[in-house]
Amino acid sequence: MSYDRSAVMRAVKSRDTGAERAVRALLRAIAPGYRLNRADLPGKPDIVYGRRRLAIFVHGCFWHGHDCARGARMPKTNADYWRAKIARNRARDERTLALLAAMGWRTLVVYECELKSLDSLTMKLKRALVLVERT
């Protein structure tokens, strides 16, 4: 890996990303009172409503292999490495969601491309929160 690529990779944040901050801003208006990055839960969810047992993950489309235009884009250099890396990320995500479900937690995954339609994303968040309140 070249120095330039290493510098770019070091700059990638794992928490408090722009997408996370945007989702949290929507949630503050809907239902404040969440916690961030609970290390005691599998996958260390980005946003957690403890009493509602709802874990929300905010995923970057590229890093988690989402089926949108950005997620389908593959780097031209070292393509085998990136294909394997993203496949491992997807497998880890599936394991994490299964572990949380086995513990009785509900999960919601928000991909960064969903931020293009804030109205639609707001409705998705409201549905998840209302569904949890009813159970």
Score class of each variant (00 low, 15 high):
R51I: 02
C113H: 15
H59G: 06
H66R: 05
A79P: 15
K76V: 12
N78I: 09
R73K: 07
I47T: 01
R88H: 13
N89Q: 04
R51Q: 12
G60R: 08
Y49H: 12
A98Y: 00
G104M: 10
R51V: 01
W105L: 09
E94R: 13
A69R: 12
R83Q: 15
R83F: 10
A98V: 00
A72D: 09
R90T: 13
R95K: 08
R88V: 09
A84C: 12
A72L: 14
R73P: 04
R51H: 09
I56F: 02
Y111G: 11
E94V: 15
V109L: 00
L97A: 09
G104H: 04
M103T: 01
H59N: 15
F57A: 08
R70Q: 12
L115A: 11
R92P: 09
L54V: 14
N78Y: 08
V58R: 05
M103Q: 15
A79Q: 13
A55C: 09
A98H: 00
T77S: 11
A91Q: 13
K85F: 09
Y81H: 13
H66Q: 03
C113V: 09
T77Q: 09
L97Q: 14
G50C: 15
D93F: 05
V58N: 03
W82D: 08
R73G: 03
I56W: 05
G60C: 09
G65I: 05
I47F: 07
E112K: 10
I86E: 14
Y81K: 05
A101W: 03
W63Q: 04
A79N: 11
M103P: 00
M74P: 02
R52C: 03
R51Y: 05
P75F: 00
L99T: 07
Y49M: 01
G65N: 08
A55I: 06
K85R: 06
A102C: 02
R73Y: 03
R88Q: 13
A72H: 11
F62T: 08
C68D: 08
R51L: 11
L100A: 00
M74A: 06
I56E: 02
R106K: 14
Y81A: 03
V109Q: 03
T107E: 05
A98W: 00
A91N: 11
W82S: 01
A55H: 11
W63L: 07
A84Q: 14
H64Y: 07
R51F: 04
R52V: 01
H59M: 05
V48Y: 02
P75E: 00
M103N: 13
L115M: 10
L115K: 08
C68Y: 07
A87M: 01
R95F: 02
G104R: 06
G60S: 04
G60A: 06
G104Y: 05
G71P: 14
A84H: 10
R70W: 10
R73W: 11
K76S: 14
V110Q: 04
L108W: 06
H66T: 06
V109R: 03
T107M: 07
T96H: 06
K116D: 15
A72T: 12
P75T: 00
